[in-house]
Computed example of a mutant assay.
Amino acid sequence: MKATRIIPILRIFDYQKAVEFYVGWLGFKIVWEHYFEENAPVYMEVEKGDIVFHLSEHHGDGTPGTRVMIWGEGISEYRSELIEKKYKYNRPGLEKTFYGAVSFTVNDPFGNTIIFNEEYVEEKHKDLEFSSIH
């Protein structure tokens, strides 16, 4: 089997808070939104580059407290962009992990955790300042 796309479904409880966090702060864009009927919960897709999430207000779609690990490049630069936005609910520190990554973690308003990782390369990352592990 070869996976061509993996899309986590994350439970949300408030459309405006989800848009503030995922679009306003993390820089995702809304691809589509679906409502089964008027005054129904939203089910939506957001993306940033190759990262795709489905966000759902529907009971039973996902569980609050889900953790998603994302591997990519430019993690420290992306973290710097987020810090510059001064989002009052998240100020993630940069860490060098035990599993050989440069990493930072964000927590969405609904209890979900997203961990952004990049393979640690000594020559490329030697001058980064890392937060202490907590």
Rank of each mutant, 00 (worst) to 15 (best):
G100M: 02
P8W: 10
E33W: 04
E123P: 00
E81P: 00
T105C: 08
V106W: 07
E73G: 00
N39T: 05
I83M: 07
E45I: 04
N117M: 03
G65E: 09
S131K: 12
P41E: 08
A18F: 04
I115N: 10
L26H: 12
Y99I: 03
K96P: 01
D127V: 00
T113L: 05
V23I: 15
D108K: 06
A101N: 12
I7Q: 14
E81H: 06
G65I: 06
M44A: 15
D61M: 12
Y15D: 02
G27R: 05
E81C: 05
R11T: 05
T105P: 01
I7N: 11
V52K: 13
F130V: 05
I6S: 13
T113F: 03
E77I: 02
P109R: 01
K17F: 03
S131E: 14
F21H: 04
F104N: 03
T97G: 07
D61P: 00
Y120H: 11
N107H: 14
H58M: 11
E73K: 14
F104D: 04
F36S: 14
I6M: 13
I83P: 00
Y22Q: 01
R67C: 11
A40G: 13
D61Q: 11
M69E: 13
A18G: 12
Y22A: 04
G72Q: 01
R91C: 08
I9R: 08
V121C: 04
T66W: 01
A40V: 02
A40M: 07
L82D: 06
E81Q: 12
S103A: 15
E33Q: 15
K29N: 14
S56L: 12
K126Y: 00
L26S: 13
H134Y: 11
F116R: 02
E122W: 10
H134S: 13
D127M: 00
G60C: 10
A3S: 12
K29H: 15
P8V: 10
D14T: 05
I114M: 13
V19Q: 08
E81L: 09
V19I: 15
H134P: 10
I7A: 07
I115H: 10
A101S: 14
R91W: 05
R67G: 07
F13N: 12
L128F: 01
I83H: 06
V68D: 07
A3E: 01
T113E: 15
Y35R: 15
D108T: 07
F28K: 03
K48G: 02
D127K: 07
V121P: 00
I7P: 03
H125Q: 04
G24W: 01
E84W: 05
I83F: 06
A101H: 09
Y43N: 05
S103Q: 14
H58R: 14
L55S: 11
L128D: 02
K96V: 06
E38C: 04
P92Y: 13
N117W: 01
R67D: 09
K48I: 00
D61K: 04
G24D: 11
I6E: 06
K86I: 00
G60H: 08
E57P: 03
T97L: 06
F53G: 07
P8D: 08
H58V: 13
K124A: 06
F36Q: 13
I6N: 12
W25V: 09
H134E: 14
